[in-house]
């Protein structure tokens, strides 16, 4: 066990910070949804993943914090191989924040408790300290007035901001966004995108699965186009979105723009 952990450390030095995805494959039963995907995300980089539904974007994102276990391939985050048998997955996950399409707030807890829960259970902070951090983060996202409400009493936009807060409170190295604005009413989308933009400007390393092309164009350092379980095109946002090289991307863009 300790030998393996040491090996992992030695390997880690060869890998930079950020995220490295190496030939990741994922099958559900007989269906292969990721067919050998490799992608590097450097520190402070914002990568937007676009593509038609069923192209494997969300699955790839969930592989990055091992909510989905890849069938094969390697995933490195912050110099640690998550796919190694010896990896402490829970510790690694605490450093990768994730925001979901349907918010996934805990409905039986107050907004404040939603944020303090992992601080107390995972980081084992005392109640007072956890609340301090939670209130500070909730204030930063402009939702501190909701502290004592239940998620059901908040709007979708507020819930998603709380979800972002909940992830940020753990001080992640990397943030993953899984169609974070897809379930929102149109008038609430902008507020959440603004928070994501602010986070990007703060230098957070981000992987964003999105249908918001304007956001991708403006905020992303790089855009990745996925189709049918593979990365088809990748490059600087402006280049990929205005000058698509493949028919598939041209087709996709003509439908969403």
């Amino acid at each position: 066990m300790s030998m393996m952990a040491q090996d992992a450390k030695i390997d880690a030095s060869e890998h930079s910070k950020g995220i490295q995805i190496r030939d990741v494959r994922k099958s559900f039963g007989d269906t292969e949804v990721l067919k050998g995907v490799s992608l590097d995300v450097s520190l402070r980089e914002v990568v937007c993943i676009i593509g038609p539904s069923g192209s494997g974007k969300s699955t790839l994102l969930k592989c990055i914090n091992l909510l989905e276990q890849p069938t094969s391939g390697e995933i490195w985050v912050d110099g640690i191989e998550l796919t190694a048998k010896s990896a402490d997955i829970n510790a690694a996950r605490a450093r990768v924040g994730m925001v979901f399409q349907h918010f996934n707030l805990f409905p039986h807890l107050s907004i404040l408790e939603n944020v303090t829960m992992a601080l107390r259970v995972v980081k084992r902070l005392p109640a007072k300290k956890a609340e301090e951090i939670a209130v500070r983060q909730l204030t930063r996202l402009g939702v501190d007035t909701l502290s004592h409400l239940r998620p059901a009493d908040c709007s979708g936009g507020q819930q998603q901001r709380v979800a972002i807060t909940r992830a940020l409170a753990m001080e992640p190295q990397v943030m993953l966004f899984d169609e974070a604005t897809s379930a929102l009413d149109p008038e609430l989308v902008k507020g959440v995108l603004d928070e994501m933009r602010a986070l990007a400007l703060d230098g957070m390393t981000m992987v964003v699965v999105t249908h918001e092309m304007a956001f991708a164009r403006e905020v992303a350092d790089r855009v990745v186009f996925m189709d049918n379980g593979q990365i088809v095109e990748t490059g600087p946002a402006e280049e990929v979105l205005t000058n698509p090289q493949t028919d598939r991307l041209q087709n996709f863009l003509s439908q969403v723009l």
Binding site: R93, M98, N104, H108
Partner: peptide
């Protein structure tokens, strides 16, 4: 999604069940 959210925050399967899933 409840279990996924809890796990994504670094909770173990046991913690996620005990604090999030089972009470609901």
């Amino acid at each position: 999604g409840q279990l996924q959210a809890a796990r994504s925050l670094g909770m173990t399967q046991f913690q996620a069940m005990r604090k999030i899933v089972i009470p609901q």
